[in-house]
Design a protein around this nucleic acid. Structure first.
Length: 407
RNA sequence: GCGAUUGUAGCUCAGUUGGUUAGAGCGCCGGUUUGUGGUACCGGAGGUCGCGGGUUCGAACCCCGUCAAUCGCCCCA
């Protein structure tokens, strides 16, 4: 048989193993615990949807739709897309699954997402997020609850130090539009002095100029019109209720007037938990209120707010989570005793004591292998029919009891 | 799509101004030590030096191309 060249993994995918996989699981388990505490209901979502689920909601940002999504045709010629985010799919399910009856609905999920991007630190083509949404709640308390949960989660994960909550409001639809118009006319005046990217953004996505990294843009950004001057009374009241609620909940935050969302369906609250420990990819958890989204999918006007966080990025901030220590290693020094060892091993495991068996390779080396596993106790089954148990004083007394049964 | 950096054993890395059969540690396999908590000794297997081309008497090393990884730009729903 001709030997083939081993297929390479797909760019931007990862095989997660060992301590990293443990940390990944730790993040998910912690999220599950917190989400139950806040009474968010678990949902499971399909990994792919009709392309329009995502393209409709993304609207005019054609770059994203055309270049950043994993889209393909199925055998029936229908365009499908691997989900690049949770929110649009959840909004679709809310409409097609009759979930309106549960409104206001608090839901949470996690799993893989796919974006066709060049991988870099903390950014992969298949990546994983945890996600929480409140659908059908228009009041600022919903924003507060979601933010409090996020803050709580980061603290439980032990990564809150060095992470700050940046908070902004985009106002209601009118406020947002007025601000946007003011930004466009402001930047238009300096057009030629802006970076090429920002000149481009002026047409496509003017709000994005505010978080340009180009030093040529920074001086103009500093003096750009502020959203606060364009907020309607209602929008202002909404934002201050969110701020007051966060204060009551004991959640610290800083105002980030340049924090924006590019898509039109975002309203009011926008937020990101940011760290400086992850290089250029500093956002650890982000979200906001998307009151306009569900309408773009053909539903009734439905207020909603949510956030998502990259599991990989959270895991990078968590101090290494070690694999659970191994309780017992059984060393078979006499091959005739292998079945005796298997029986004892299973008995230990049924008692909830983790156990491994070493019975391969040079008999002389087996004990050394056991030592390297760093178990709580080593049991060697010897040629004379007896066994020797070594371990420290904390060794589980059940071990001796169980072994006695399998002499 | 663009830029920078890096590709040598399963892993982490040496490898001199270009010079004979390309090295170490760890891991793996075997032997010695009859061992009681990661640490000893001896030996073995394992390498198209990312891939292709070029320069040269001679290339892991220099040049061109290509692929991949990492980090950054763009984008960030």
């Amino acid at each position: 048989m001709a030997k083939i060249e081993t297929p390479r993994p797909i760019r931007g995918t990862q095989d997660i193993f060992g301590p990293e996989a443990e940390t990944f699981a730790y993040v998910v388990e912690t999220f599950e615990r917190i989400r139950k505490l806040y009474r968010f209901r678990r949902i499971e979502m399909p990994v792919f949807e009709k392309t329009e689920v995502f393209s409709r909601s993304l609207g005019e940002t054609t770059d994203v739709v055309a270049k950043e999504m994993y889209s393909f045709e199925d055998r029936g010629g229908e365009s499908l897309t691997l989900r690049p985010e949770f929110t649009a799919g959840i909004a679709r399910a809310y409409l097609t699954g009759g979930w309106q009856q549960y409104a206001p609905l608090k839901v949470a999920t996690h799993g893989p997402l796919f974006r066709y991007e060049r991988p870099q630190k903390g950014r992969y083509r298949q990546f994983h997020q945890i996600d929480a949404e409140i659908i059908g709640a228009a009041e600022p308390q919903a924003d507060v609850e979601l933010l409090a949960m996020a803050d709580h989660l980061l603290k439980e994960l032990g990564i809150a130090a060095g992470v700050t909550l940046q908070l902004n409001t985009l106002g209601d639809a009118d406020s947002r539009e007025a601000w946007r118009a003011a930004l466009v006319s402001y930047f238009q005046a300096f057009r030629a002095e802006l970076s090429e990217e920002s000149q481009d953004r002026l047409e496509r996505n003017p709000l994005r100029i505010l978080d340009s990294k180009d030093p040529r843009d920074k001086p103009f950004v500093a003096d750009a019109p502020k959203i606060d001057d364009y907020l309607s009374g209602e929008a202002q009241a909404y934002f201050s209720q969110v701020c007051e609620g966060l204060k009551a909940a004991g959640v610290a935050w800083t105002r980030a007037p340049a924090l924006v969302r590019g898509l039109d369906y975002y309203r009011h609250t926008a937020f990101e938990f940011v760290t400086d420990r992850l290089g250029a990819q500093g956002t650890v958890l982000g979200g906001g209120r998307y009151d306009g989204l569900i309408e773009t999918l053909g539903g009734a006007h439905t207020p909603a707010v949510g956030w998502a966080a990259g599991i990989e990025r959270l895991a990078m901030l968590v101090d290494g989570t070690a694999e659970e220590p191994l309780a017992v290693v059984l060393v078979v020094e006499d091959d005739a005793r292998i079945n005796e060892a298997i029986a004892a091993q299973q008995a230990l495991r049924r008692e909830g004591i983790s156990a491994e068996l070493i019975a391969t390779g040079s008999p002389r080396k087996r004990y050394d292998k056991a030592v390297k596993r760093a178990p709580g106790a080593i049991v060697s089954l010897q040629h004379d029919g007896g066994h020797r148990l070594s371990g420290d004083d904390e060794t589980d007394p059940r071990i001796s009891q169980i072994l006695a049964l399998y002499r």
